[in-house]
């Protein structure tokens, strides 16, 4: 099945951002995920054609980066940071209780297609450890219970808002579209900075 004319037009607009078209391969792959939920054959073939490169070259790129998936993600993709610091601070416990709770393992998706999980590496939020990302939004200072509640609510269709992010959690596909550079207008939602980010400033100002 072909992409729609509108989708193809968006692809062209992504390509137009760069001095050389090949640079658009990554945002285009994000965009394919926004439409198809993972890197599909039609995605690879369309990108190859648009950028005038071989399908093998697109494959080489798409398999290099962990965010590009070979299988559909859940509507809510939960990444538990298990890099050393988060793991020690509780990430391991969170991950174990989550797999128990959902009955799925790393890179798997629940049968209802709602939740997939992934062990992730450090996500630049160590001062909020342990950190969990859902659809690549920050959920700070998590505990095993808070994450269980989080996925249950997500499966029920009303996930809590990210700690530092928009007021409502968007789906994995919608957020992939943002990464392709297509604005969803939500930048103004959420805090400027979380507590730990402000700690030094507050101390300096004598507020703490």
């Amino acid at each position: 099945m072909e992409f729609t004319a509108d989708q193809l037009k968006i692809m062209d607009s992504i390509i137009a951002r760069y001095p050389r078209s090949r640079s658009a391969v990554m945002p285009l792959l994000h965009y394919v995920q926004a439409i198809d939920g993972y890197i599909t054959p039609r995605g690879i073939e369309t990108i190859a054609k648009k950028l005038d490169i071989a399908t093998a070259e697109v494959t080489a790129v798409s398999t290099f980066y962990t965010q590009y998936r070979t299988e559909p993600a859940g509507e809510y993709h939960v990444g538990v940071c298990v890099n050393t610091l988060c793991a020690v601070m509780g990430g391991d416990a969170i991950y174990d209780s989550l797999t128990d709770h959902l009955g799925i393992e790393n890179h798997e998706t629940t049968k209802d297609g709602k939740v997939s999980i992934e062990r992730i590496e450090c996500n630049a939020a160590c001062d909020y450890a342990p950190v969990v990302m859902v659809n690549w939004e920050f959920y700070d200072n998590q505990t095993p219970q808070s994450v269980k509640d989080l996925v249950d609510a997500a499966r029920a269709g009303n996930p809590p808002a990210p700690t530092r992010g928009p007021k409502t959690l968007r789906t994995w596909k919608q957020n992939s579209e943002v990464l392709a550079g297509l604005s969803d207008g939500l930048a103004n939602e959420g805090v400027s900075a979380g507590g730990p980010s402000l700690l030094g400033l507050k101390i300096a100002k004598g507020e703490k």
Binding site: I44, E45, I53, A54, T55, A56, T59, A60, T63, F64
Partner: peptide
């Protein structure tokens, strides 16, 4: 000038490969 085989995946899983259809 025929980049039909490429290095795919990365790290210890890196491997030579093609795009399945080509």
């Amino acid at each position: 000038g025929d980049p039909f085989i490429t290095l795919n995946e990365r790290g210890a899983l890196q491997q030579v490969g093609i795009y399945a259809e080509d």
